[in-house]
């Protein structure tokens, strides 16, 4: 039987960044489970040396199409061309806005199954590839498969997987694709005015070693400010659960959970977070978790390494000393 083709669609403008590494690492793991081969499909502009770095994470082949335009429709046509020619069993996309659009256009064009924002993927003899994402209203993860679908596609949440270098990287074959279609984006619009947005928050959440999480148990501004101050002192990034972000205490980009980002710090301290599954999926890769909550039965304690039953405000008064 032919090897299963596992694709990772990569943005060559981003180089082989950590997100790309995470996807290829997962693809490599899936290739071992499913007797597959890993193909990293790059569109954009990158050097051979750069592309060869994919081997470090276990890619078997790179398919590369040089393209100066970054336009979803142009990329869709390129991707369709490659897919129609060599085929794939599973295609993994990152979940950047661009990739989400590209994957949706692709799934619609080929009428294949697409699962959004996966937090895990596995291969089972009985079910084939299985995608996991939080089920919205329940405290559980939904396991999703593709049916009546020529191939399975998904977008993956950042930091859902760990970037892992393999022991003995193989010599990587770079296949230069020669797309003969148009590289010109359809000019159906005209820019009247463009303003750069001032980034209010330059925190580098992906590389943060220490992260403080704020939940609904933080009831007043004073406590919140104490947590932020302590965060500065210990060089920790302060993030929040969905309800804290909805309340406007923190910006959306600092929301952690299924509908926000996933993080993997060395230490995560959860202040007044009850531990809805929605949030837990975003912090489960943290190396160590300390939870402070006044409810000793809060679900957050199930995944905490260190359990502290205390009122957050009282605790912070001492902690901020």
């Amino acid at each position: 039987m032919d090897k299963r083709k596992i694709w990772v669609v990569c943005d060559a403008f981003d180089h082989v960044d950590s997100f790309t590494g995470q996807l290829i690492s997962k693809a490599y793991q899936l290739s071992k489970e499913s007797n597959g081969s890993v193909q990293a499909v790059f569109i954009g502009n990158a050097s051979d040396d750069e592309l060869k770095r994919c081997a470090l994470y276990g890619a078997d082949e790179v398919v590369y199409q040089q393209c100066e335009t970054k336009d979803e429709k142009v990329w869709l046509d390129i991707l369709s061309d490659i897919y129609s020619s060599i085929g794939a069993d599973i295609i993994m996309f990152t979940n950047t806005d661009f990739s989400k659009t590209l994957s949706s256009l692709f799934a619609s064009r080929f009428e294949v199954g697409l699962t959004a924002d996966c937090i895990d993927i596995c291969f089972e003899e009985e079910n084939g590839f299985v995608f996991e994402r939080a089920a919205m209203s329940d405290s559980v993860q939904a396991r999703i498969i593709c049916i009546n679908s020529q191939c399975c596609t998904c977008t993956v949440k950042k930091n859902a997987f760990v970037e892992t270098e393999i022991n003995a990287p193989k010599e990587l074959n770079i296949r230069k694709w020669e797309y003969t279609g148009s590289f010109i984006a359809d000019p159906a619009y005209e820019i009247i005015n463009s303003v750069k947005r001032v980034c209010e928050n330059n925190t580098d959440l992906d590389n943060a070693k220490i992260v403080f999480g704020v939940g609904r148990g933080v009831k007043d501004r004073e406590t919140f400010d104490m947590i932020c101050q302590a965060g500065k002192k210990y060089n920790a990034v302060v993030v929040g659960t969905k309800c804290v972000v909805d309340d406007g205490l923190l910006p959306k980009k600092l929301q952690v959970g299924q509908s926000g980002c996933s993080i993997a710090p060395d230490l995560y301290i959860a202040f007044g977070i009850s531990g809805a599954n929605q949030h837990l999926v975003g912090i489960r890769n943290s190396r160590q978790i300390i939870a402070v909550n006044n409810n000793e039965n809060a679900p957050i304690f199930n995944i905490a390494d260190v359990k502290i039953v205390a009122d957050v405000k009282e605790f912070m008064k001492e902690f901020a000393e």
């Binding site: 009428e111 199954g113 697409l114 079910n127 993860q141 396991r143 999703i144 593709c146």
Partner: peptide, 8 residues
């Protein structure tokens, strides 16, 4: 084209 098989 997709189906939830179960929840875990």
């Amino acid at each position: 084209k997709t189906k939830v098989i179960n929840s875990v």
